[in-house]
């Protein structure tokens, strides 16, 4: 599936991604009201990593209504609406407005690392804050499952996940970007990103994603589904996240290197590997690392 933050601004882009083999699409983070992002440069990359501080720009719920409404007219794959806000109260208000648009899942972004100047430490950095947001969203989400998007930039992601689970979370997305990090231009001696710092993604962060997913799976005893995201570019990457405990895989940064059809390519690579290795269904990989210790 398409991870949040990549493409995802319009119904036509979600459809395009579905055409290229994604099993689900995630919107960019939706705000209640229009929110401006940071000035450029906002995204920079090398072959190993991408740093982004786009600053979560969005035109607000009115635009979401138009685009999600358009998408729902002829929906090729499920839509995950990612929401963001500056307080637990506004998470609830945003969730309430978005729930009316009937997305298949809600994903709650409490872990963006590049709007700290504006809003302070992400909610995902404290078990109490994360649980409070979860509770507020769950109170208005009705029968739409709520996934909490977790931050890897914490001492113990398992504790945070457990607190969210106790507050009613139906699942998790792990992980948001790492860091934040910084890149400096040699001649001007200035940080390149206008926001100075930005979240790290791309191939370099996959080992962190694998470890965090394993921690969340262990803390919640594998009872809640985990959308694994972070550095996935190939079928083997996806299966590694599944062994750690992910049951759905999100791809973001890799669309730049492997093209829009990265989703179909990853699925084909997984099937080919499973066929060659005699794995009947790749579903059996989910959480396989944890079971390997008991067998």
């Amino acid at each position: 599936m398409l991870a949040s933050g990549i493409w995802g601004i319009t119904a036509s882009s979600w459809r395009r991604v579905a055409k290229h083999g994604a099993g689900a699409v995630t919107t960019k983070s939706l705000w209640l009201k229009e929110h401006k992002g940071h000035s450029n440069p906002v995204i920079i990359s090398t072959e190993h990593w991408t740093l982004n501080a786009v600053g979560v720009p969005d035109a607000g719920v009115e635009k979401a209504k138009e685009e999600i409404g358009e998408y729902n007219k002829d929906k090729p794959v499920p839509l995950i609406a990612n929401i963001i806000a500056e307080s637990a109260e506004n998470y609830a208000k945003t969730a309430q407005a978005i729930v009316e648009l009937k997305p298949d899942f809600l994903e709650v972004n409490i872990s963006c690392p590049n709007i700290e100047d504006e809003f302070g430490r992400p909610f995902a950095c404290s078990a109490d804050d994360a649980a409070a947001v979860t509770k507020a969203v769950k109170a208005v989400s009705g029968d739409i499952p709520v996934f909490i998007k977790l931050s890897p930039n914490v001492e113990n992601i398992g504790t945070i996940a457990l607190a969210c689970a106790k507050a009613g979370a139906d699942g998790f997305t792990a992980i948001n970007t790492v860091g934040p990090g910084m890149a400096i231009d040699l001649r001007s001696r200035r940080p390149i990103l206008a926001n100075r710092v930005g979240g790290l993604s791309g191939p370099a962060i996959k080992p962190i994603a694998v470890k965090c997913i394993a921690d969340v799976y262990k803390a919640t005893e594998g009872k809640l589904p985990i959308i694994g995201t972070g550095g996935v570019a190939t079928g083997k990457d996806a299966m590694e996240l599944m062994l750690a405990g992910a049951s759905l895989i999100g791809i973001g940064t890799a669309v730049a290197d492997r093209g829009a059809d990265v989703f179909a390519k990853v699925c084909e690579e997984m099937s080919a590997w499973c066929d060659a290795e005699g794995v009947a269904s790749c579903g059996e990989l989910i959480g396989g690392m944890h079971r390997s210790f008991s067998s």
């Binding site: 493409w7 601004i9 991408t50 786009v54 669309v255 730049a256």
Partner: peptide
């Protein structure tokens, strides 16, 4: 345009969804 290389999605056009 923001990123210039196909990640941010700001330059996606309707109805094709191409960047």
């Amino acid at each position: 345009m923001k990123c210039g290389y196909g990640l941010c999605g700001n330059c996606v056009v309707d109805p094709l969804g191409i960047r």
